[in-house]
């Protein structure tokens, strides 16, 4: 694997992960602002399924099956043949389709525009939500102190 594909994969990993977790309404709203989306052909129509989520004993040990979660996946090809995959949490076929489209567009000349108008603002919104929660958690951080007992 060349360095370039490594970076390519890492970048794709990042935007696909972002799309998987993104709130559907925000993703659709940002795409609507872009305007007409390119035509595509289905390679795999959106399908809803489950994946078994695993944990590790003690957080570090042997894996075990914790329980399932719902995901929706699909694959499509733009007219120039670029293939996009959508893997998103939940049961929205519409969101999976949009995620696959963005994944495909991010591999074309439109990448810069899509990154600036969809990926970056989505990432920012999600980061803000995460930081807000972390800030609320931080406000509940305590410093316990033990009372000195007479007999000690």
């Amino acid at each position: 694997m060349t360095d370039q594909t490594k970076t390519g994969n890492a970048a794709r990993q990042e935007w696909m992960g972002l799309l998987a977790r993104a709130p559907e309404e925000e993703l659709i709203a940002l795409l609507d602002e872009i305007g007409a989306l390119p035509r595509f052909q289905w390679i795999r129509h959106p399908e809803v399924g489950g994946v078994m989520v695993r944990g590790r004993i003690g957080g570090t040990g042997a894996p075990f099956n914790l329980g399932e979660m719902t995901i929706t996946r699909c694959s499509l090809a733009l007219q120039d043949g670029t293939v996009g995959h959508g893997y998103v949490q939940g049961r929205s076929k519409r969101k999976a389709e949009k995620a696959a489209l963005v994944d495909a567009l991010m591999q074309t000349d439109a990448a810069g525009d899509v990154r600036a108008r969809v990926i970056a603002p989505l990432g920012q919104q999600m980061q803000t939500a995460k930081t807000t929660r972390a800030a609320k958690a931080a406000a509940t951080k305590v410093e316990f102190f033990t009372m000195v007992r007479g007999e000690d």
């Binding site: 809803v48 399924g49 489950g50 078994m52 695993r54 944990g55 590790r56 894996p63 914790l66 399932e68």
Partner: peptide, 13 residues
């Protein structure tokens, strides 16, 4: 639900 697979173990740390 069709089973799409098993995830990597979650990193609770």
């Amino acid at each position: 639900l069709p089973r799409f697979g098993y995830t990597n173990p979650v990193k609770t740390d």
